[in-house]
Amino acid sequence: MGDRLDDLERRIDELRAGVRRAMRARDTATARGLRADLRAAERAWDALVTGGLDPALPNDARAVPPPGDVRAVFPHDNARAVSPPEGPGRLAIPGEALGGVPVGGAPSSTAAAGGAAGRQPGAGGRRGGGGLRLVTVREQAHQALTLLGVPAQPRLIAAVREAFLGGGLRGAQLTSLRRDEERSFASSPYGRPYYLCAALTDRLSPARGLLAVSTWPQELRMVGPLSPRVHFLTCAVAVAERMAGGHGVDAEPDSGAARLLARMARNIPGGAVLDIGPPDPARVIEAARAELAVHAERDTRDRADLARRAAAQLGDRGRLFGAATLSTIGDRAATGPPAT
């Protein structure tokens, strides 16, 4: 085995040097070929050196252990875990910490799961020790959006899930969701009780990176110049109310909920007394409402105007998913003549 390892190492060194030389010369075709050989050699090396354990598991497929548990960090002596499968029908299990889902209830995975449970004893949405309830990614996002009540970015949706509804959702899983939803809507309009749709800009195009719920009134799905701030403050109120309501409030100061609220609180004038220590939900609510009062009237007016325009200019699909995706011509029509 030593000889084979030596040979492989020599080969890997040669290939690496070759790839980097090719990259430097911008010879991408050669680099690609060498890279493929290199990956194969590396996999062979990994397999040989770890004595047959399968190291080719994708990185994001590993259970990331809770902070503090050093032993659980590395893969070879740990339970294997897989991430939710890709595609619109993605499945995930609420209550499971940080993205890992035990396969077939492998016993050694309980370290990670137990750690999560220990840290979030009262996490909302977590089911008791009984059977695992399967919730799709879109349903998970829907729950989080319903909690927030306004359009939100995937990053915030994932943070809210982790804080109150049980984690398992990563922002990256939501990136293609809107497109999938639009496709579904296009093939059979209103075939689902709700769609995760776009929020629309003042040009009636979909706002980048925002998810909304189709059952919300049109005004709520419009984004005026003040709306990003209003959304943020509204979300802060929602998160603080959820905490004040006993959800996540008894968690440790470093729990997801406390961290989320602390991050929001410090960006609201008067929301955080000190940088350190757990945020006071009542204080956050008061501070956020105080600033909301400054923006609310104009924002509501702006969004109502935009909603009227959307109703007048867009069809059903456009009202949910925005003008620009219908066709590029539509985009031009909405934005005036092209640049010179």
């Binding site: 790839v19 980097r20 590396e42 990994d46 080719a56 990185n59």
Partner: peptide, 19 residues
């Protein structure tokens, strides 16, 4: 940077500690 891109990043991605 070349090492980062061509060697380290793929190894981290693959979670290959020995590599």
């Amino acid at each position: 940077p070349g090492f980062d891109a061509e060697v380290l990043a793929p190894a981290i991605e693959a979670g290959a500690a020995e590599r």
